[in-house]
Write a protein that binds this DNA or RNA. Structure first.
Lengths: 195, 195
DNA sequence: TGGTTAGCGGAACAAGGCTCCGTTTGCTCA
DNA sequence: TGAGCAAACGGAGCCTTGTTCCGCTAACCA
């Protein structure tokens, strides 16, 4: 909410009022559309729901990835910030890692189509990749490092690879009663463990 | 190869010679196109490569899944048949399971886009799902069962879920040097183990 | 060899992404 | 305050890709 561009600083010359209003409206419409139809809902649908033309969407969010990032930014930030907290408060580093991964999984499986988009190699999702990785890989790396240092897990696990694998496991996790991504992810976490 | 419809029996009234020829040509063209452009290469491209009209493709293979199944049938059969063999010849059931899963992974990661298609919930891939599952789930179940009976792995793993998870892990495994599906799958197999 | 019809090709339609440009409207400054 | 200007808007329209449909061609059979 709030403060899309109040020009906290620098050169950006503060957008026109209607532009700011539209951006807000679009975010709301997109968030709603993502819930009902998944993150690859047709652009036209979002535009219609927001009561704007498609051109307006492309002006504010050049790629679908930009729109997705804008919609989910807060939740991703929250997830990223939870990492250090869990590490500080939790019992063992391995438990903190497990809990953090669960947060990530819960986030992904409740967003229709997001896990798919995250793994897509379509150039349009470049930004999405970049944002998620830049925000989450360092957090995951720190958790892995702590657990490895404590001797709880094998020391050779790469954070990028783990996140990517976990993301993959979340694909199709909604709408399929016979497949539980959480259970598979638990298996991976268990497999990390030294014994 | 060969013997697309030599009418080994029953009612089907033996297709015309040109139809059989075209089916053969299409399979070759599709196999080649899948390699160079992945399994979601445009239908027009396959038609052009085969020198036929798009209508001809749809007549022989109503959905893309039918074409994919036809192209990879032999390899899937081989994988399915390897299961019992590994179980009979291998050292322990867990080792046989691990080796069989590796076969499956090797198959998937060398087919651009196949793992994605396999998890897609698009109705057009229904047949693909059905075929892979009907062929591989029983094999996997038998391997799991043997390993569980031997007390090597937890007894509550579902074959469908495991295959689905492994399939998911293979998504995007080509073309990404930082992600190794085999390593992630090994983690899962390790996680299955009792200790 | 001629009639029947399976099978063929590709035009045409639908759906969705993305661009481009004529029009509208918020903002600034005299 | 209102005239001028550029930012922003809307949506027609183009492109790609999937899918259908139908007039034509040529295998097959008697």
């Amino acid at each position: 909410m709030v403060d899309i561009d109040s020009g906290s600083g620098s050169s950006a010359p503060r957008k026109r009022a209607d532009a700011r209003r539209n951006e807000e409206t679009l975010l709301d419409a997109a968030a709603a559309a993502f819930i009902t139809s998944g993150v690859d809902v047709p652009v036209r649908d979002i535009a219609a729901k927001a009561g704007v033309g498609v051109g307006t969407i492309y002006r504010h969010f050049p790629t679908r990835a930009d729109l997705i990032v804008a919609v989910y930014r807060h939740q991703v930030e929250a997830c990223a910030e939870a990492g250090p907290t869990l590490l500080a408060n939790g019992s063992t580093p391995h438990a903190a890692l497990a809990r953090w991964i669960n947060l990530f999984v819960d986030f992904l499986v409740t967003k229709r189509g997001l896990a798919e988009a995250l793994q897509s190699d379509d150039a349009a999702f470049e930004t999405l990749h970049a944002y998620f990785l830049s925000r989450l890989v360092p957090v995951c790396a720190r958790l892995l490092d702590a657990a490895a240092t404590a001797g709880e897990i094998r020391p050779d696990m790469d954070a990028y690879e783990l996140l990517r694998g976990v993301g993959n496991l979340c694909i199709g996790a909604d709408n399929n009663p016979r497949y539980d991504a959480r259970r598979m992810v638990e298996l991976v976490i268990a497999g990390l463990r030294l014994h």
